[in-house]
Computed example of a mutant assay.
Amino acid sequence: MSPKYFSPTGGHPGQNQLLTDRAIFTEAYAVIPKGTMRDIVTSFLPFWSQTRLWVLSRPMTGFAETFSQYIMEVSPGGGSDQPETQSGVESVLFVVEGEVELTIDGTPHNLPHGGYAYLPPKSVWTLHNTSGSVSRFHWIRKAYETIDGLDEPDAIITRDQDVAPTVMPGTDGKWATTRFVDPTDLRHDMHVTIVTFEPGAVIPFLETHVMEHGLYVLEGKAAYRLNQDWVEVEAGDYMWLRAFCPQACYAGGPGKFRYLLYKDVNRHMKL
C-alpha cells in the first residue's frame, strides 16, 4: 500500500476567512501551519524553470543555524540543469507527490512518490519533471562539515516503501523510525528520517538535546509539546526547533502520525 503524504497546493483564502491561525514563532521553536503555504508566500530560484517553492526554514543566527528546507513544486516540463548554486552543500530530496527524473553524476534515476535521495556535496545533479502532472518534494540543504580522514558519503537512492522501520525499544511497535542512512556511518553529518507513531502512542519524556530539528507532518495529527507549550499539529504543518528545545508528543489518531525529521549529527561542537 502506497504511503499518504500531505503536500501544499497554494491558492489564496477568501476575504471571509478569520485571521486567527495556529502560526507561532518563539525564541525556542516555530510552528508553520499548512494554511500559511499560499501563493503569496512562494519563492523562485535561479536556473529553475516552471518551478516555485515554499521556504520552510533557513539558517538564522540565534535560532536554528545548520540547514534550510523547501517544498519544491515543479510543473510538467520544469526542472533545472543547475539546481544548486553554492559549493560544499549536501542535499536530501523526498518526494511527496508525483515523480521526478533525477540525474546524479550522469546516472539517471526515477524518484517516485515516497522516493528519497541523498546528494553528496561534490555530486553533479540535475532534476526534471518529465511526467504529465505536478511534482512536489522536500529539499533539505546543509553545508557539509568535512573531516580529515573521513571520505564524503556516497549518493543514496531509495524509497520510504522499501525501508523497514526500526522500532523503538519497549514501545510494542507503536513508535518507529524509518532510517535511510546507517546511523553508524560517521561520514554523514545530518540524518533525515521518517518517524511513525501509532494512534495513542507517545514520546514519553521531554527530549532535550543539541540537535536542531525540522519536522514536517506527512500524515495524521498530534498534540506536540514544544518548550513550555502544547500545540496541535496535523498533516501539512511544519515545526522548526532550535537546539535544546524540549519536545514530546501524543499521537491523536485515528490513523498513524508520521513526520519527516531533520537533525544534525556526528560532529564536534564548533568552539
Rank of each mutant, 00 (worst) to 15 (best):
T171Q: 05
G98L: 07
G77E: 14
V167R: 08
V100W: 05
I194L: 15
F137C: 05
A164T: 15
T103C: 12
P76L: 02
D105A: 11
R159A: 03
G132E: 14
M190V: 05
G78T: 00
A117M: 10
E145H: 12
S133T: 08
Q82C: 09
I147S: 13
S80A: 13
S135W: 03
E73H: 12
D148R: 08
T103A: 11
E198W: 01
T85E: 06
V89Y: 09
Y116V: 03
R159W: 00
D148C: 00
E198H: 01
D154C: 02
D189T: 15
S75Y: 10
I156C: 07
H113G: 01
P120Q: 11
G173F: 06
Y144V: 09
T196W: 00
V192N: 15
P121G: 01
M190P: 04
K122Y: 07
T166R: 14
D81L: 15
T178H: 06
S91H: 15
S135G: 12
V74M: 14
E152V: 11
D172E: 15
T130W: 00
P108K: 09
A143C: 02
S135M: 10
T85D: 06
P83G: 09
Q161T: 14
G78M: 02
S80Y: 05
A117P: 08
H188E: 05
A164C: 08
S80C: 09
T177A: 03
L186A: 09
L119D: 06
V100A: 13
S80H: 07
D105R: 13
W125N: 02
E99H: 08
G114R: 01
G88T: 03
P83Y: 02
F197C: 04
P108T: 11
G98V: 07
F137M: 08
S133V: 07
T166F: 11
V100F: 06
K122N: 15
I157N: 02
V74P: 08
R141A: 15
E198P: 00
N129A: 11
L93W: 07
R159D: 00
G149S: 10
K174C: 04
H138S: 14
L93Q: 06
V124T: 14
H128P: 01
S131E: 04
G98Q: 02
E198A: 11
F180K: 08
R187T: 14
P112N: 04
L119W: 04
E99R: 12
N110D: 12
L186K: 15
A155G: 11
P121R: 05
T85W: 02
T193W: 01
Y144K: 08
E97C: 04
T158P: 02
